[in-house]
Amino acid sequence: MTALASLRRIGLPRLVVHLSVLLICLLWLVPTFGILVTSFREPQQIASSGWWTALTGSSQTMAVRLADGVAARQDGTNYVISGSVFEAGQGGKVQAFGTKVTAPSDYKASEPADLGEGETLTINEDGSYTYTKNAPFEAGRGKRVYLTVGTPPAFTTQNYETVLTSQGIGQAFVNSLTVAIPSTIIPILIAAFAAYALSWMEFPGRALILAMVVGLMVVPLQMSLIPLLKMYNEVGALFGVPSRSYAGVWLAHSAFGMPLAIYLLRNYIAGLPKEIIESARVDGASDFEIFLKIVLPLSFPALASFSIFQFLWTWNDLLVAMVFLGTGKDQLVLTGALNALLGSQGGKWEILTASAFITILVPIAVFFALQRYLVRGLLTGSVKGG
């Protein structure tokens, strides 16, 4: 009855919403967790089993040949060949074996298997075997057998060491930070000043400017990228600025992020209590002092909200970085370096997953550091916009 009463108190619609949100979160978290687990696994285990078996071990089928008949020794009336199915340095636990590729688990490990014609084969879990026959073995290639081998869970950091040292991801990581941090700070600083002016300063054309800002939000990046690059090259030629530089990436990201930043911050700043602004003006504070000492601290949730969006966009960007920064090995950002790995290391999933997880580490850290301000910053502006 208690559970039923709690369900009635929560309400069916609200429960459906909660379960839907939980399901969406799981759909996002499961692939991420899979990438993390795979990035620490060894290549052989990745090829033989899924990441969900990483904690319980995995099994794979392999074919081996026993020793040649020349190596046989006589034991009474029988002839015996013994040895190990594993090569030096190879490990694992034999779970079952068979003599046909279609039935690699016909016989259990450590139990004698009657192969017919006076032949008996026993393969132990550690890989040692005894092959017995009541007649001499023929010289030639050894008998082929198929094994079902289980391997214990094994994890390694070698994948990350390889990526950070020999795959160029380390330099690309630095390049991405160099691009993303200024590209997030610059539009926030400019947009905050503009948002305050559009909210609390009276001047002609304010409504028209705000309408233009809203209109610029719908301009596709792909349509304006080439004109922007041409303009940047022409202006850069006048001042001797290289056509491929970080300045171009910063300006491009700032230009594309500015309309949304001004719109979000303006809605939030316009919703601040009017009495605080008027009291500061009565006390003789200038607009710059009001902005710096009152508006900016109170607008931190909105600033943090836009910072999350802008940082994620610039961190995950590939197109703008390739156009304005270049595609050289020392110029690639993380997304570009990961794209290059897809071509050169397409079959090495341990390298790709380690690279991918390195790529998402920083955005995850930024999001969890600022996520408590995200909803407050977005909803407050939408409700109190003036």
Score class of each variant (00 low, 15 high):
I24S: 13
I24G: 07
C25V: 13
C25K: 02
C25F: 14
L26S: 14
W28M: 15
W28L: 14
L29Q: 06
L29F: 12
L29N: 11
L29C: 12
V30Q: 06
V30Y: 10
P31A: 05
T32L: 14
T32I: 13
F33D: 01
I35W: 10
L36S: 08
L36E: 02
L36W: 07
V37M: 09
V37G: 05
V37S: 07
T38Y: 00
T38N: 00
S39V: 01
S39C: 02
R41C: 01
R41Y: 02
R41W: 00
R41K: 01
E42Q: 07
P43L: 02
P43T: 07
Q44V: 13
Q44K: 12
Q44S: 10
Q45T: 12
Q45E: 09
Q45P: 02
Q45A: 15
Q45V: 12
Q45L: 10
I46F: 00
I46Y: 00
I46R: 00
A47Q: 12
A47L: 13
S48Y: 05
S48R: 12
S49I: 06
S49L: 05
G50F: 01
G50W: 01
W51Q: 10
W51I: 08
W52Y: 03
W52N: 03
T53Y: 06
T53G: 03
T53D: 10
A54Q: 06
A54S: 14
A54R: 03
A54W: 04
A54V: 06
L55A: 13
L55I: 08
L55W: 11
L55Y: 03
L55E: 01
L55F: 10
T56A: 09
T56Q: 11
G57Q: 07
G57S: 09
G57L: 05
S58H: 05
S58G: 07
S58C: 01
S59M: 02
S59G: 04
Q60E: 13
T61Y: 14
M62V: 15
M62A: 15
M62W: 11
V64Y: 11
R65H: 06
R65V: 00
L66K: 04
L66E: 06
L66D: 12
A67P: 00
A67G: 13
D68M: 11
G69T: 08
G69I: 11
G69P: 05
G69S: 11
V70K: 15
V70S: 15
A71P: 05
A71I: 05
A71F: 14
A71E: 15
A71Q: 15
A72T: 03
A72N: 04
R73D: 10
Q74M: 06
Q74E: 06
Q74Y: 01
